[in-house]
Simulated scan of single mutants.
Amino acid sequence: MAERAVAGLSNRVSRTADRLNDYAQGSGGNLLAAVTGVEKLAGGASPLQAAVSAGVSKLGHTARETFESVKESLTGGTGKGGTKKLKLTNIVEQIDIGVPIDLAYDQWTQFADFPKFTKKLEQVEQVSDEKLTWTGKVFWSRRTWESTIIEQVPFERIVWRSKGAKGYIDGAVTFHEITPDLTRILVVLEYHPRGAFEKTANIWRAAGRRCRLELKHFQRHVMTEAVLHSDDIVGWHGEIHDGEVIEDDQTARRNETEDNRADEEADEEMEEAEQDEAEQHEDEEADEHDEDQFATDEEEQPEPPRHRTAARKSPVTRRSRMSQGASR
């Protein structure tokens, strides 16, 4: 009987091991921890103890995997040779705003107004035309970082690079005119978290959700406040390339004024030319109409009456008269 019991137990363990191996191969090996419970069952432990041991082993394995994942996210991980991997998050967001492109661009360049309608920004200081200092909240802590605009083309794009002890954001924003009263804003960010809070929040992609929310705040501000007070918004129309100001705001506006004046003069000249051409065309049509009328009048005049020619005297009559004279 003992031999029969041992043989039955061995068969059950063998069948269980085969099932576990097959299942493990199909599921990536997450259930291999259950082998510990099987081994304990083979060693004489009760089925309940074997199952509990298998579950505890599996739970420990899962916990270790989770801890390693969080640790890698917080520390940045290590690559080959012990070097740290570059950990960053790419964020791409867009939003459509029902205003002209010049109004959307002018409002965006008013960086000092960002804390008025955003939630996490506390202060933006414009150090110079191309340098800014930002102060924001991350959980209950404050973070400060600096950004440098390396390229700015009015009504087209702004590209910047940043640096900060606890993390920074590099990115670009572009402006696209869909219709004269509809503008699309495209934001592309490269987020480099460094602090513990930043890396923890980056696990749940908090930066991407924050960017999406702040764009909606910007849209609401532009369509409710900027539209009503558009004359009060004075954007920066200068141009920056390679981190240097190529054209300042005053020069850019002066050139814009001259270009607008030149465009207006060109439009006036074009309108005058079109008006002269239209008048000339009307004169030509009037002349053609007069010629056609004159030709019609000539065709309608009656033909002059034909005069009858005098009848020629026949020679017989002349001879008869001559004969009569001779007889006299």
Rank of each mutant, 00 (worst) to 15 (best):
A201F: 07
R210L: 08
K58W: 05
E146N: 15
D297F: 08
I169M: 03
T183M: 05
V70S: 10
P100D: 09
G98E: 10
A278Q: 13
G325L: 13
Q25W: 01
L20G: 00
R15K: 14
S141I: 13
E303Q: 08
V127E: 10
K163I: 12
S46R: 08
R253P: 02
E39Y: 09
T317F: 01
A252Y: 13
D170A: 03
K71Q: 11
D22Y: 05
G167H: 09
E247W: 03
V52P: 00
E298F: 09
W160H: 00
E265S: 12
I169A: 00
R308H: 11
Q49P: 01
E285Y: 04
E244P: 04
D102K: 14
A252I: 10
K116F: 03
K120I: 10
V188M: 04
S162W: 02
S27H: 08
E130H: 15
K313Y: 08
A311H: 07
S323V: 15
E269R: 15
W108L: 08
V56F: 03
K40Y: 01
A273E: 11
S14K: 14
R15N: 06
Q324E: 06
E244F: 03
G77A: 07
S147W: 01
G81L: 14
L48D: 03
E239P: 04
E151I: 15
D267S: 12
E256N: 15
L20A: 00
E277H: 06
R253E: 09
Q110F: 01
A63D: 02
I185S: 02
D283K: 12
V245D: 02
D263M: 06
E291K: 09
H281L: 10
L9F: 05
S10I: 15
D106F: 01
V92M: 05
S230E: 12
V173T: 12
G76M: 03
I149N: 01
D22I: 08
R143E: 07
R19F: 02
Q94L: 05
Q324Y: 07
K84H: 02
T16M: 11
D22F: 05
V127A: 07
R306K: 14
G238R: 02
D287F: 07
R4H: 05
G29P: 05
E300R: 10
R19T: 06
R254Q: 10
T179L: 06
E279G: 05
K40R: 10
I178Q: 07
D170M: 03
V153T: 12
Q293W: 06
C211R: 02
L9I: 14
A17Y: 00
H237M: 13
A172I: 09
L88V: 15
E277N: 13
N202R: 14
D263A: 15
A278P: 03
L74Q: 12
L31N: 02
K80L: 04
V316Y: 03
A196I: 15
Q107E: 03
A45F: 09
I169W: 02
